Computed example of a mutant assay.
Amino acid sequence: MEKIKALIKKYYEGLSYLFFGGVATLLNLVLFALFQAVFGTDFATGAGNVLDNAICILFAYWTNRTFVFRSKNTGKAAWAEFGQFVSCRIFTMVLDQVIIWLGVTILAPHVAFAAAHGELWAMGVKLFSQVIVIVSNYVFSKLLIFKKK
């Protein structure tokens, strides 16, 4: 039991990032699917994707600051941290949007499966995009935003 506790303590940051990142990704995918079901794929891959990313950015900041990186910054330093976090997440949101646009608008018309199963194709593109976004977000968070001083 002590070995397990030691491993958890040693790898806490990575494990907690995976857990809370997974929750944020699940929230992102659920909102995407909800928007797709209620408003259609065009909305979900456009304005809905931006909206669900904005919601998830706020959720991710709170969980990353509080549970993953355990930031102790206050005042101006906390606001600077928040600004860096949002700036980096806006970058990855744009990356997400570009991947979705390429996959759904540019690539889909040339793929038979996409033509037959547009909503499922869009969700697959979103899942692919999330893998790239998660890795990018971790690198930004670890190296730029919540770096240990």
Score class of each variant (00 low, 15 high):
N53F: 12
V86C: 09
S87D: 04
T41E: 12
V50T: 15
V30N: 03
I57N: 02
Q36D: 15
G75C: 02
L15S: 11
I90R: 04
F59R: 03
W79L: 15
S16E: 13
F43Q: 00
K72H: 14
F59V: 08
F39H: 10
F39D: 02
S87M: 14
N49I: 05
G40E: 03
Q84P: 03
F32G: 01
G46T: 02
A37E: 07
A80M: 13
N64F: 07
V38T: 12
A33W: 02
V50D: 09
F43K: 00
N49T: 07
S87N: 08
D42A: 05
N64R: 06
N64M: 06
I55D: 04
A33T: 07
N53R: 08
L27K: 00
N64G: 08
A78L: 12
N73C: 11
S16L: 09
V30Q: 02
G48I: 04
L26Q: 10
G40T: 06
A80K: 11
K72S: 13
V86E: 08
I55Y: 06
F35V: 07
W79Q: 09
R89D: 15
F67D: 10
V38G: 12
V50Q: 15
S71A: 05
F20V: 13
T74N: 12
Q36M: 15
E81Q: 11
W79Y: 15
A80I: 11
T25A: 11
C56L: 05
S16Q: 11
G22M: 08
V50K: 09
S71V: 02
A54P: 05
G21W: 07
I55T: 14
L34H: 07
F20S: 09
F32V: 01
V68N: 08
A78G: 10
T41S: 08
G46P: 04
L27R: 02
F82R: 03
S87P: 09
T63H: 06
L15D: 05
I57S: 01
F43N: 01
R70C: 13
A77S: 15
L26V: 10
S71R: 11
E81G: 01
Y17W: 07
L31D: 08
G40A: 01
L27H: 01
F35H: 02
D52L: 04
V68H: 00
E81N: 00
L31E: 07
I57H: 01
R70P: 10
S71N: 05
I90Y: 01
L18A: 11
F35A: 06
E81P: 00
F69Q: 13
R70V: 06
R65Y: 14
N49V: 01
A80P: 00
L26N: 09
L29H: 03
S87E: 06
T45F: 03
A78R: 14
G21R: 02
S71G: 04
V68R: 03
F69H: 12
R70H: 15
L18G: 15
Q84Y: 14
I55K: 06
L18H: 10
G21Q: 05
T66F: 09
S87A: 15
F67V: 03
T45W: 00
I90E: 02
V50M: 14
N64P: 00
Y61E: 08
V86F: 10
G75V: 01
T45P: 05
F82Y: 02
T41N: 13
